[in-house]
């Protein structure tokens, strides 16, 4: 009995300690975004701003490119998410269900592309955008992100796991491939579509390296790019921490909200990816 009690106590102690380790940086981020610069420098650990001030948050909107970055991030995220969900579900369905020449080769190619690490594509992507005249434009920022191999893979795996009988019934009733896909298959695929939407949303909202090699005009920066510029560039390092932390906080909020609402889908992604690798 005593042993269970001590082990339970120890368990909670460990969990609470690590919960603090994992969450306190966010507390620091929120608190220091609302502090004066002097206060943030003097008491970086304190969760209570003294005095509490909105000056930094106001300066983010009036004194930095933040509104522009925010607008660009929303645009990129919305278009890329729609593209990835549409193209991903179509391609995933075709690879799983439709009989056509070259299907096996395409799937092998997809698996190969999934193994390509994004960081080695920095120079290659710049080269192709430069060659196509898309460098430093919205199309360069958006179009290359519209399809992703992992999303297609997730959808194909999903369709593989669903019995074909319902679709066949629709087809026998005379519905064409497109009708069947639109009115029978997609409604059935709702959980997978939600997963793909979340995956695409967080992926494109947080995307950084691609923006680094596709645009250089500050008017085309997204939030991660603007934030990186704010820290390592124009304003210089070491100062203005409340401003930087506030901007980082605002950039984190949308993903945090999505995470809290759709948490079970997040957890499902990682395990699904892990199983099939």
């Amino acid at each position: 009995m005593i042993r269970t009690l001590t082990s339970r106590f120890l368990g909670y102690a460990i969990l609470i300690f690590f919960a603090l380790v994992f969450l306190y940086p966010f507390v620091i981020q929120i608190a220091n975004g609302l502090k004066t610069e002097a206060n943030a420098a003097a008491n970086p650990l304190s969760p209570f701003p003294d005095p509490l001030t909105w000056v930094s948050l106001e300066r983010i909107f009036s004194g930095t490119g933040f509104p522009t970055w925010l607008g660009n991030s929303v645009l990129v995220t919305v278009v890329v998410t729609i593209g990835r969900v549409a193209f991903g579900s179509m391609a995933g369905y075709a690879l799983s269900r439709l009989q056509f020449r070259g299907r096996k080769a395409l799937f092998a190619g997809l698996l190969a592309l999934m193994a390509v690490p994004p960081v080695v594509l920095l120079i290659p992507k710049f080269l192709v955008l430069n060659q196509l005249g898309m460098y430093n434009s919205y199309s360069g920022l958006i179009v290359p992100l519209l399809a992703d191999a992992t999303g297609i893979f997730v959808m194909k795996q999903f369709f593989d796991s669903v019995p074909v009988s319902v679709e066949e019934a629709a087809r026998i009733d005379g519905a064409g491939v497109f009708r069947t896909f639109w009115s029978v298959v997609l409604p059935m695929a709702k959980p997978a579509l939600i997963t793909l939407t979340i995956l695409s949303f967080t992926g494109s909202w947080n995307e950084f390296p691609h923006t680094l090699v596709s645009v250089q005009d500050p008017g085309l920066f997204t939030l991660p790019r603007g934030l990186a510029d704010l820290v390592s560039g124009s304003l210089g390092a070491g100062t203005q921490y409340p401003l930087k932390l506030g901007a980082a906080l605002l950039a984190t909020i949308p993903v945090a909200i999505i995470f809290v609402i759709f948490q079970r889908y997040f957890v499902r992604d990682t395990t699904a990816g892990a199983d099939k690798g």
Partner: peptide, 18 residues
Amino acid sequence: FYFPSVTSSVAISVVFLF
């Protein structure tokens, strides 16, 4: 424990820099 891994790498780097 899972939340940090869904946030933006750039945003979180700013926090750790501080």
